[in-house]
Design a protein around this nucleic acid. Structure first.
Lengths: 335, 335
DNA sequence: ACAAGTATTGTTATCGGTAACATGTTATCG
DNA sequence: CGATAACATGTTACCGATAACAATACTTGT
């Protein structure tokens, strides 16, 4: 096993100093074009591979942007990640991904770990964090972005929307269609705080609209998905007839609910309405299409990228920026 | 903005040498317990954050495992990633993720980029790579794992299954149920080589079973998903009646096909059978449930983790290991 | 032909840990 | 009590790239 090829080796082979090699490989204009060519060629011949770790160490710039997601296994978060990833491509930043499993404690652990890699910015999903996380982050002079939420007391920049407001749109829509007895299907535990916001958005708006109290149907601990939605309905048994509409925390849950309702011979939307959240692909492809809230998952990632690019290119950082990407009601056939 | 706190600062504050701090923070038993305690306490007080970049540089061990996935936005790959991530937790390795968008050229670019971070191992999805990628990787003395496939000429270790064989199981099942006129719905272009293997698995087995030639129905360039499946069926129009079964490259595609068939008033499986691949959640929740191939996405990741842990703990590396996790027919209600 | 300016290359020190080796300090025992 | 081992800590050099500064090699105009 031969020793690693370094710039020194390339330099020796070409007959220049390592510094010139360094410049040439970074495409520094000041290096004579012929020299540059020669260096690149020799580097390729020797199988030289640039060492980003050494660069990161010397320049104190890691080239990393740390990202925490509740779950990687969620089409919307995955889309956001892609938007961010694609958007940051030009800047050469690499994403360091961690997933919190919808728990702020796990997030804290992750943040601690990610910080040891010296990220140049950190992107968090949601606006809820442990005190320790907040402390860790504010102790550093590091651009912070929170996304998928509009926190009241943001840590830094924000790209998100109001979950409660989005849910309110659904409730209003249902109320206007004459649905009165609502059930909410979502994670029951309090670890998924985004879910809690959605739930509260539903109950608050229902109260405001003078609807009867919304019954909370427990789909188990976060993350909840299709099968949990189906389970809630089958557990309800005939009681499902008590509801005019089931409002679900997400489209996958709504799809599970919808499928199980149909298995039970219920007519959707005739007997009961079902709504989702997130405008996942399944919402628009399923038959019937699911009424949902459209959130621009990919755009959130792209906006975060734009924001970061701005910061990295040294633009004036006039305080913190808050981008509300909003949300919209997407009418399907289930309501 | 105060300068960064280093081990030197902690050492000064405690009155020991930086080396002792280094040892204490890594929980070296040789450091006196009282000293260790003091050091940890002072480190916390000063807000010291360990610099993994410096460590990686000095020890020439990055603590990274590089992973390439065709797409992060795919429940199965996401599961594999989680299995891998969870499995590697104990070893303290961090995953560096890149996505290839189902293109080997993109993979090459990614590999090039990832290698500059000095990963201690690299995990690739699939067994197809450009020559350049193969060259880059074999030039390094780096553990390589290919997953989700059983390549004929593997680069290193393998954790996967045979896509062609899995498809053959479906075709056999369909033939035995009396379905003769098959259509295959998948990405048409040749960039998605795993998709190509599945397709060839179908056509080969159909020929073997004496079925008429399988018609290839183009769902567009990879990645293909629910909407593409639906589009294929709606583009077929009444021609859909020509088929006894539509074999789809994945469950999401099958779900799109299924939904569109139902919209057109077709009875599934009465008029036509539909099969998927991957045993995604949608397959088991949808009504009717989709017949599919069960692959143990999470287990693949876990097995890769086990394999890597083994290598990292210095176990004898007797050649390359090949783990066939197999696949199984999951009978649903669409066939 | 020479000064002044521009283009190109080189030198030195350094980022923050840690391996390898050296040294000091406290127990243990004949 | 002195020698030896076991324990605890310190010293030095270095991982590979690059910022800052220095030096040299060309141009150009007069």
């Amino acid at each position: 096993m031969t020793a690693r090829v370094t710039m020194r080796d390339v330099a020796r082979a070409v007959g220049v100093s390592p510094m010139t090699v360094s410049r040439a490989l970074r495409d520094d204009e000041t290096v004579n074009e012929k020299t540059r060519h020669k260096i690149r060629q020799v580097a390729a011949e020797l199988g030289y591979v640039y060492d980003t770790t050494a660069q990161a160490f010397r320049t104190q710039k890691s080239g990393f942007v740390a990202v925490t997601l509740p779950s990687i296994n969620n089409a919307n978060f995955a889309e956001t990640f892609r938007g961010l990833s694609d958007g940051l491509g030009p800047s050469g930043m690499q994403l360091l991904l961690g997933s919190t499993n919808y728990r702020v404690e796990k997030e804290e652990e992750l943040v601690r770990q990610l910080l040891t890699r010296n990220p140049e910015a950190i992107v968090l999903t949601g606006g809820h964090h442990t005190d320790e996380t907040r402390a860790l982050l504010s102790a550093r002079n590091l651009p912070i972005v929170e996304m998928w939420d509009l926190p009241e007391d943001p840590l830094g920049h924000v790209v998100g929307f109001s979950n409660a407001e989005a849910m309110a749109k659904l409730v209003t829509h249902l109320a206007e269609s004459g649905r009165r007895r609502l059930g909410y299907v979502g994670a029951s535990d309090l670890t998924d705080l985004r879910g809690a916001e959605r739930r509260d958005g539903v109950t608050a708006k229902a109260a405001e609209q003078g609807l009867p109290e919304v019954e909370i149907l427990d789909a188990g601990p976060a993350p909840v998905s299709m099968r949990h939605g189906a389970q809630v309905v089958s557990a309800l048994g005939s009681r499902v007839a008590d509801f005019d509409a089931l409002v679900c925390v997400s489209d996958p849950v709504a799809f599970g609910v919808l499928s199980e309702c149909r298995r039970q011979g219920l007519d959707v939307p005739g007997d009961i309405a079902v709504t989702g959240f997130g405008n996942f692909e399944v919402a628009s492809v399923s038959d019937p299409r699911i009424t949902t809230i459209g959130v621009t998952a990919r755009e959130i990632g792209e906006q975060v990228a734009v924001l970061l690019e701005d910061l990295f290119s040294g633009n004036p950082q006039d305080g913190t920026r808050v981008v509300d990407v909003g949300s919209r009601l997407v009418r399907g056939e289930t309501s």
